[in-house]
Design a protein around this nucleic acid. Structure first.
Length: 418
DNA sequence: TCTGGGGTCCTAGGACCC
DNA sequence: TCTGGGGTCCTAGGACCC
C-alpha cells in the first residue's frame, strides 16, 4: 500500500501559520519576481483565481476582492516543510519526500497493525495540523498513481473529508469515474485534449485503454500511467526515489541585466547551486548547459546556449564555476537586456563509477567540498562561497510582498503579547 | 527503369509537475 | 514605467558516419 500526503495550497497555507488574522481570508502567493500566481488558498479558489497567470493581469481583480497577496517566502516554506515531513515520517518507516509539500509513504507489513486506512489517514491529518497548523490531504492506493488519485479525491471531491482509499477495483472505479482525465498524474492539458478527441474523458476511461496501443499513440509515460491505474505498479519505489538525470538552476532577474559582471555573478551562483545538488545525490556531471537570454516577450529575442564537456566528471563547485567563466564571453553581448540565465548539469553519473582521465592530474577535492557543505548546512547557505559569487543585488529577485522569516531569523520571531 | 540502411549524437521543443 | 516561474524528462527530426 502507498500513501501520498500533501498540503492544501502549501505556500498559501504556510502564510497563514503565523498570521491567524488571514486564516479565513483568500490568499495567493506569487512566484519569483512576483511574476505569476503559484498558490491559491481554498477561499481564493472560490473566486476563480487561476494558478500561473501573470500577477499584473489579475492585480485589479485581487484588489477588488480583498485578496491577501504574498511573495514567495522560501526560507519560511522550507522550514515548515521539514517540520511537516518529520511529523509525517512518524507514521511510516519508508518515506520519500517528492516535493516541498508532498511525500509518498510505502507501507509493507502494516496490515496487522493498521486495519482501517481511513482512520490512519485521519490520524495523520490531525497530528500534522496539531503540530504544524498545516492542512494536509491523504490518499492511499495500491500503486503510486492510485495514491495520487486518492489524494486528489481526498482534497477535491465531496464526501471524503481529507482522506481517500483505493484498495481494490471497486474503490478505484468509484473515484476514477468522478475524475477528469487531466486530473490523473502525468496527464496534462495537451494530452487531455487529444484524449478527449478519442472520447476518453474520465480517469476511468483512460484506465480501460490498451497500454501497448496507447504507448504507440503517445508515449511510454501514458502506457505506465494506464498500468498503474489498473493496480499494476510500474513506478517502483526505487524508481520514484531514483537519482535525477539532469539538474538545473535557472532564475529570471529582478531587474534586467546588461553588465557582464552581474551576469557572471548570477551564473556562478547557479553553478554553486547545481554542484551542491549534485553532491547531495552523489552524482557527477560530464556535461553542462550554460545559457542566458532576453525576454521572450521582446521583439528581438536573444539567446545563447553552450555545452561544456568535462574531461573528468565532476561535482566540484570551483571546476563548474570555471567552466562558466570560460563560456561567459561567448554568451554575453552588450546591448542585450538579459532577462534570465541558468545552467544545467546533464549526462550525470554516480560518484561510484568515476572514470578518470589518463592525462589530466587527478585531484581529490572531495574533503574540501564536504567541509563546505557541512559549514553551510550548519551556519546557513552562503556562509562559505566562491569569491566570484559576490553579492550582487542587481540581479536579485523582486519580492515586494514578503512576509517575515518567522522561524529562521532571530529578528523575525513572532512575539505574543498578552 | 528505378531504387536506397542502420546507428548515434545533438538540439529544440513538447509535455508534464508543482 | 513595465510587468509573464522553475525543474525534469521525453521525443522528433536533422546531421553525420559507415
Amino acid at each position: 500500500m502507498f500513501a501520498l500526503v500533501d498540503a492544501v495550497a502549501f505556500y498559501a497555507s504556510a502564510e497563514k501559520v503565523f498570521d491567524p488574522s488571514i486564516r479565513s481570508r483568500p490568499v495567493v502567493v506569487l512566484t519569483n519576481n512576483d511574476g505569476c500566481i503559484c498558490a491559491v488558498s481554498p477561499e481564493a479558489r472560490k473566486l476563480d483565481i487561476p494558478k500561473f497567470e501573470p500577477y499584473f493581469k489579475l492585480k485589479n481583480y485581487l484588489n477588488q476582492h480583498n485578496v491577501v497577496v504574498r511573495s514567495s517566502n522560501y526560507e519560511l516554506y522550507a522550514d515548515l516543510s521539514s517540520r511537516m515531513m518529520n511529523t509525517i515520517a512518524r507514521f511510516c518507516d519508508n518515506q520519500h519526500i517528492y516535493s516541498i509539500d508532498e511525500s509518498f509513504l510505502q507501507f509493507t507489513g502494516f496490515k496487522s497493525i493498521v486495519n482501517d486506512w481511513h482512520q490512519y489517514g485521519q490520524d495523520i491529518r490531525l497530528t500534522v495540523w496539531r503540530e504544524t497548523k498545516l492542512p494536509v490531504g491523504v490518499g492511499f492506493g495500491i500503486t503510486p498513481t492510485l495514491a495520487k488519485a486518492a489524494n486528489h479525491a481526498a482534497k477535491k471531491l465531496s464526501g471524503f473529508n481529507g482522506v481517500a482509499v483505493i484498495d481494490d477495483k471497486l474503490s478505484a472505479k468509484a473515484i476514477l469515474q468522478r475524475m477528469s482525465v487531466t486530473d490523473v498524474w502525468g496527464i496534462g492539458s495537451r494530452l487531455g485534449k487529444k484524449l478527449n478527441l478519442m472520447h476518453i474523458n474520465t480517469a476511468w476511461d483512460l484506465a480501460q485503454q490498451c497500454p501497448k496501443y496507447m504507448r504507440k499513440q503517445f508515449s511510454v509515460v501514458v502506457e505506465r500511467t494506464i498500468e498503474e491505474l489498473n493496480g499494476k505498479t510500474c513506478l517502483a519505489w526505487d524508481e520514484i526515489k531514483q537519482d535525477k538525470q539532469e539538474i538545473f538552476s535557472t532564475r529570471s532577474f529582478g531587474e534586467r541585466v546588461t553588465n557582464i559582471n552581474d551576469l557572471k555573478a548570477a551564473l556562478v551562483t547557479h553553478s554553486s547551486i547545481v554542484s551542491r545538488k549534485l553532491r547531495q545525490q552523489a552524482s557527477l556531471t560530464k556535461r553542462l548547459v550554460i545559457f542566458a537570454h532576453s525576454s521572450i516577450h521582446e521583439d528581438s529575442f536573444y539567446k545563447r546556449s553552450f555545452l561544456y564537456d568535462f574531461p573528468v566528471a565532476t561535482s566540484d563547485s570551483r571546476v563548474i564555476a570555471n567552466a562558466v567563466s570560460e563560456v561567459l564571453p561567448q554568451i554575453f553581448s552588450a546591448n542585450v537586456r538579459f532577462y534570465k540565465a541558468g545552467i544545467g548539469a546533464i549526462d550525470l553519473i554516480s560518484e561510484k563509477y568515476i572514470q578518470e582521465d589518463l592525462f589530466s592530474p587527478c585531484r581529490d577535492n572531495k574533503p574540501l567540498m564536504t567541509s563546505m557543505d557541512k559549514i553551510n548546512k550548519r551556519f546557513g547557505t552562503g556562509t562559505v562561497r566562491l569569491a566570484s559569487e559576490q553579492q550582487s543585488n542587481r540581479w536579485a529577485m523582486k519580492r515586494d510582498f514578503l512576509s517575515a522569516r518567522y522561524t529562521t531569523r532571530w529578528s523575525d520571531i513572532p512575539i505574543i503579547s498578552c
